[in-house]
Nucleic acid binder design. Structure first.
Lengths: 348, 348
DNA sequence: CTGAAAGCGCTTACAG
DNA sequence: CTGAAAGCGCTTACAG
């Protein structure tokens, strides 16, 4: 910056003011400074300015992983907003329990970002308390944190509506497939299960533990065995509600390879509206993933910029049930199904 | 840090030395300082230390998007290595041409990271020159940049081997489906097309422009229309080689919904070994995506830590053709196919 | 092994 | 509208 000042024949104070766009700089001076800065292809040192202002112009995202459709799209939404605001995006991906505890122990984001977005994590009370020590606003994404800024969908209600679609089609035996990963359950899992149960209760159906499975996602055996378990029940389900489209697509693959017709013998309902779901004709509960990311980033910005902003603000996004070809009324009887299947048009 | 020094009864110099793990601190002093730091839950200000050392302890990644399987996994690999090294990950996602030019204009990573990883981008010579002005090591990921550190696979050779599988099955009319996005072509696209052509030449087959399509990925109409174009050729292909599994899966969806049997009437070959490809029984050319990310991050680290490190080092990963159920020999004749199809077991 | 002092490159009152 | 000076919180020779 001193070089620019010298070249423009002004003080560093003036260079600083010019480059930050303050109005208290005469047009001629501004012009000279900008010219000099351009010629030297000068960029302000963020480290130095952060040291003075206490602002890093960086937003951190804490995420359980980076390689899922949901998180990729959420973070893409975050990224889009930050880019416009010329804020940088810092990503902390914590993929197993060891890393998780290391993260909360070290809190590497401390003094290193102006706000943090926590996606999906179902935090323990201790972890949540630890985040308060970060000394920066924390926005909860894809989960409802009472008294903290949050951006999410109503998972329970959304799951319940999805279930109603299956129930209205006539299904009475509906399995629920949860996924989990190494870092613990997602916040939304429990909520969706709650919606599943609420829908059953509403329809006067019993909750059957046999039908609720927790295969470990990202572990292929898990899904296949879970499906095997369902197929070998005395009274197997006629429909499967998977917690996410990614799980649903895997279930579809397993069933197809096992020669089980979808939706002839088993209907499949997913959750998310994954990019591939339309192609694979998967009925699902859609959530506006990228928008959730955008809203979370906007919320973080508003809290940073305006300390008066309501720090408990919640933004809830609507979801939509999208009927596609993976769901249909259950086959009336086994015998009828066997008759009908060979001539039935394949539309998946 | 002054607070810690006071509490421990030492100077800030000593606190600094202790916290950086220098050996020139007596055990007792070290103990006192660590205790004080813990009690105050002190964290060193990265801004301040960066200002002195010139190191940010941050690595930037430039990527065309965040929501593809390939990039999500690559960045996950990068992230894993950086986490271990206690380096932070800064993500610059540039999703359209306007953002792209803004990025190269502003170079927001300047003075803000110790190295940059460029994933997938097929850069113009001007852009590449601009990156040199960053004043930090730049590692090219998933592309071969002569004279610059690069981590990649041999796309041309890999595509050629995939093609040989189709040719060995007896296919003679093989389409090639490229994908592109708003920011321009991926580096690997051209290379894979080169491999496609080489395999045709090797088999003594002509290159037929009709069979090479560039639908816009992420734009659903594009894929469907591309498939329509292939299906309405006078002499349609018996196999489709898609540039990526994501495109291949979409093609499979379109063909299924159109009642075209896979692999009975058309075989499909993908590229990547996407998480869902095993489930969907897609034949593909597998690349070790996460490992590529890890290797790139390691390479960046080694160049940062050791200025003597060979700055032109290239790491090439092997790929593997994985035969699955989406490929089979072409049907002998139309008439034979019509006969055989209804009784053929569906194994996808 | 430890401390006092200079300095990294900015921003920000304070004066003018 | 502009400049001189202090100071942000560290690290790093330099002394001892």
């Amino acid at each position: 910056m001193a070089d620019v000042a010298e070249r423009a024949g002004v003080s560093v104070s003036t260079v600083s003011r010019t480059l930050r766009g303050l109005s208290s700089v005469s047009p001629q001076t501004r012009h000279r400074v900008e010219k000099a800065a351009r010629e030297l292809s000068f960029a302000v040192s963020r480290s130095a300015s952060s040291l003075v202002t206490g602002k890093t112009r960086r937003i951190a995202v804490l995420t359980p992983h980076l390689d899922s459709w949901f998180l990729g799209n959420t973070i893409a939404g975050v990224s889009a907003v930050l880019r416009e605001a010329e804020l940088d995006l810092l990503v902390y991906s914590v993929t197993d329990l060891a890393e998780r505890s290391a993260f909360f122990d070290r809190l590497p984001a401390r003094r290193n970002a102006d706000a943090m977005l926590v996606t999906c994590f179902d935090l323990t009370p201790e972890e949540r308390a630890r985040l308060d020590e970060l000394g920066m606003p924390v926005v909860f994404v894809s989960q409802h944190a009472p008294g903290r800024p949050s951006v999410y969908i109503d998972d329970a209600d959304s799951a319940q509506r999805g279930m109603r679609h299956l129930l209205n089609l006539g299904h009475r035996r509906i399995a629920f497939l949860q996924s989990s990963d190494n870092t613990g359950f997602y916040w939304s899992s429990q909520e969706r299960l709650t919606g599943y149960r609420a829908a059953l209760a509403e329809a006067g159906l019993p909750y059957d533990e046999e039908l609720v499975l927790y295969p470990v996602a990202r572990h292929r055996r898990g899904i296949r065995e879970a499906v095997g378990q369902l197929l070998s029940l005395r009274n197997p389900p006629t429909a499967v509600f998977a917690e996410s489209d990614e799980v649903a697509i895997e279930v579809m693959g397993v069933l197809r390879s096992a020669g089980v017709d979808i939706p002839g013998r088993i209907s499949i309902l997913g959750f998310d509206d994954h990019h591939l779901s339309e192609w694979l004709d998967l009925t699902t509960v859609a959530q506006p993933v990228e928008e959730i990311g955008r809203a979370a980033a906007e919320l973080a910005r508003s809290i940073i910029d305006d300390p008066e902003a309501d720090p408990t603000r919640h933004i809830v996004f609507p979801t939509r049930v999208i009927p596609r070809g993976s769901t249909a009324p259950p086959a009336p009887t086994e015998a009828a199904r066997r008759e009908a299947d060979p001539v039935r048009p394949r539309d998946i």
